[in-house]
Amino acid sequence: MTHPVLDAPISPLRQRLIDDMNMRRFSRETQRNYLRDIGRLATFLGRSPDTATADDLRRFQIEQQEDGVPVPTMNSIVSALRFFFTHTVDRPDLARKLVRLAHPRKLPVVLSRDEVARLLNATTCLKHQVALSVAYGAGLRVAEVSMLKVADVDSERMLLRVERGKGGRYRNAMLSPDLLTLLREWWKVGRQQGVMHRDGWLFPGQHAMKPISTRQLYRIVVEAAQAADIAKRVGPHTLRHSFATHLLEDGTDIRIIQVLLGHAKLNSTAFYTKVATRTVRTVTSPFDKLGLFKPGENSPDG
């Protein structure tokens, strides 16, 4: 079965949608996902998605649920369709008919500091090591690492400029002295290899004119984790989770971490308090302050 919205070379509707996403500086990955998800509705309808009715959307979501589509995937489709109906076809009444489902958020996988060091040391070349070091050392999303340019490294202000963050937002990420040293080493090696240019990508792909892909970064992380004998299920976002958790455990204010991560809402950052085990271990229980058991005394069952 084909996707009417996707298969047409360039229909006016598709172009309008792409223009709306470009105007808001959506990342390439987000645009690809939105086109795919709107294509799902077009496939269901068997006609152009801008002709959908409220009943069509209701039946579409019921069918998704009955087919066992995971809740996060269903919610991602809702986001794409809400954007489409609100901005591209100016039918906000339909956007309000789409139901977003609640689901328990799983605790993120977090590496210990030792595991992060082992993973970075298990990479097979300097470019891969530096790319993963940026993901952890600056807390960047995988797409943000991929889209960094050499000019985004601001060594005077010790910042990394993230021009295409989530939702197309611009922000500054931290640049530590050790990370800058590593980046300078990669700059020298990359120049010698002929793949690094002042106006080029910080991490070029197989073709120097294109950035490294998010898929390749994912593969690099997985292979490094296996080589480092890390049994946890690891992906590029694991390094971002670990960055935030380690900062929280070191006592960094959660609102500062929110800014560093580029989170729009504080509750997104506060989620890391659930995995900051070092923070929990450093807290003294009020029970211990009762003084019921003094050092040297026998335990109750002794």
Rank of each mutant, 00 (worst) to 15 (best):
T279Y: 11
L260P: 00
F85C: 08
S112H: 05
P236F: 05
G68W: 05
D288N: 15
R25F: 10
E223L: 10
V222I: 11
G39A: 03
D301W: 14
G137A: 08
A173Y: 03
D56Q: 00
F293L: 14
M1T: 10
I212K: 01
S242G: 01
D19S: 13
E297F: 03
P70G: 08
I38A: 05
S27M: 07
V5M: 08
T88K: 02
I10Q: 15
F85G: 03
Q192K: 11
L217A: 02
P104N: 04
A173F: 07
R118E: 09
T279R: 15
E29A: 14
G165V: 03
D67W: 11
L81P: 01
P70K: 13
V150T: 14
T277D: 14
R24Q: 04
R118W: 01
K149I: 07
Y170S: 00
L98Y: 00
R59D: 10
F243V: 01
T86G: 12
C125I: 07
R59L: 12
Y218E: 15
A138V: 06
R16A: 09
E223T: 11
R58P: 06
L247T: 00
K232L: 09
G167V: 09
A228Y: 04
G200F: 01
K166Y: 07
D7N: 12
V110F: 05
M74S: 12
T73K: 04
M74L: 14
V110C: 06
R278L: 14
